[in-house]
C-alpha cells in the first residue's frame, strides 16, 4: 500500500455532516483514511436522514398503512437497537416521536408500516451509529488510533487518551470533563428539547453525558438518562455504560 502521508494535511479534518460539524482525527495512518471515514458517515446519512427524500427513513414515512419497503443494513442495525431500547424502557424511547411506537415492524429486511400516520426519526440514535461506522472505516484503512466527533457524539479508539471537554451551552466556552480511551461519550440536554414527557427531577442540571463502548449506545442512552434522570438506571449497566448529570 502506498503511503500518502507528508502532503501537508493536518491529522485532523472536519466537515459539515449529519447536521453538525464532524471531526475525524487520525494519530497513525494514511491521510486518505479521513476520506473513508467521511464517506462512511455520508452513506449513513443518505440512508437514515429523514431529510433525504431517497433515504429508507423518508421512504418509510411516505408509506401508507400496510405497505412495506426493503431497507439497507444501516436501517436494520439502528432499528434493531431502537426496538430493544423501546422494549427496555416501556416505549419511553420512541423513534416514532409519539406517532405510534408499535406502528412499525421489521421482518427480515423489510420494514412494515402498521398504521397510517406513523413516521420515524432516527435522529436520537443514528448519529452515534454513524460515528461507529466511521471508526470501522478508519480501522479498515489501517489506522492504529484516532477518533471521530460528530458534534459531541464522539468515540476514540486505539492507543490514545482523548481529552474530552464539555461545551457550556449557556455561557459559551468549554470545561475539561474526562479522558476517554477505547470508548464513546455523548452529551444531551434536559428540558424542552429533550424527548421526554417527564420533568427533570433536578432542574438545575441541564445536561447528561453517557460513556459506552459504542457511540450508538452512548448517543441513545443519553435519551434514557434524560428521561429517567437516574445515573443508576439498570439499562446503563446492561450496555456497559456510565452516565453523568451536570
Amino acid at each position: 500500500m502506498t503511503s500518502h502521508t507528508g502532503t501537508g494535511h493536518s491529522a485532523r479534518r472536519a466537515r459539515p455532516l449529519l447536521g453538525t460539524l464532524v471531526e475525524v482525527g487520525v494519530v497513525e495512518g494514511l491521510v486518505h483514511a479521513h476520506e473513508a471515514a467521511f464517506s462512511a458517515m455520508a452513506e449513513v446519512q443518505s440512508q437514515l436522514s429523514r431529510f433525504e427524500p431517497a433515504s429508507d427513513v423518508a421512504r418509510f414515512n411516505a408509506l401508507r398503512a400496510n405497505e412495506s419497503l426493503t431497507v439497507g443494513e444501516h436501517a436494520l442495525a439502528v432499528l434493531a437497537a431502537a426496538r430493544l431500547l423501546a422494549d427496555q424502557t416501556g416505549d419511553a424511547f420512541d423513534i416514532s416521536l409519539g406517532t405510534g411506537p408499535h406502528g412499525w415492524r421489521v421482518e427480515g429486511d423489510r420494514l412494515h408500516k402498521l398504521k397510517d400516520g406513523v413516521t420515524i426519526d432516527l435522529g436520537g440514535i443514528a448519529k452515534g451509529y454513524a460515528v461507529d461506522r466511521a471508526v470501522d472505516a478508519l480501522i479498515a484503512a489501517d489506522c492504529k488510533a484516532g477518533w471521530v466527533n460528530a458534534g459531541g457524539d464522539l468515540r476514540a479508539f486505539g492507543d490514545i487518551d482523548l481529552p474530552v471537554t464539555l461545551r457550556d451551552e449557556y455561557g459559551g466556552g468549554v470545561r475539561s470533563f474526562a479522558r476517554l480511551r477505547d470508548g464513546a461519550i455523548a452529551t444531551s440536554r434536559f428540558g424542552s428539547s429533550a424527548r421526554s414527557t417527564l420533568a427533570s427531577p433536578r432542574a438545575v442540571e441541564a445536561h447528561v453525558s453517557v460513556a459506552a463502548p459504542l457511540c450508538l449506545w452512548a448517543d441513545a442512552l443519553t435519551k434514557v438518562l434524560s428521561i429517567s434522570g437516574d445515573t443508576a438506571h439498570p439499562l446503563l449497566a446492561l450496555h456497559h455504560a456510565q452516565g453523568w448529570l451536570h
Binding site: 493536518s10 485532523r12 494519530v27 464522539l154 487518551d161 451551552e169
Partner: peptide, 24 residues
C-alpha cells in the same frame, strides 16, 4: 495551522448538545 498532532490538550474534543452546522 498546526500541522503536527500533539497528544495533549491540543486535541481536546468538545462534547456538547447543540452544535449545529446550519450557519455553515
Amino acid at each position: 495551522p498546526a500541522s503536527t498532532l500533539q497528544v495533549g490538550e491540543d486535541i481536546a474534543n468538545i462534547s456538547g448538545a447543540t452544535l449545529s452546522c446550519k450557519h455553515v
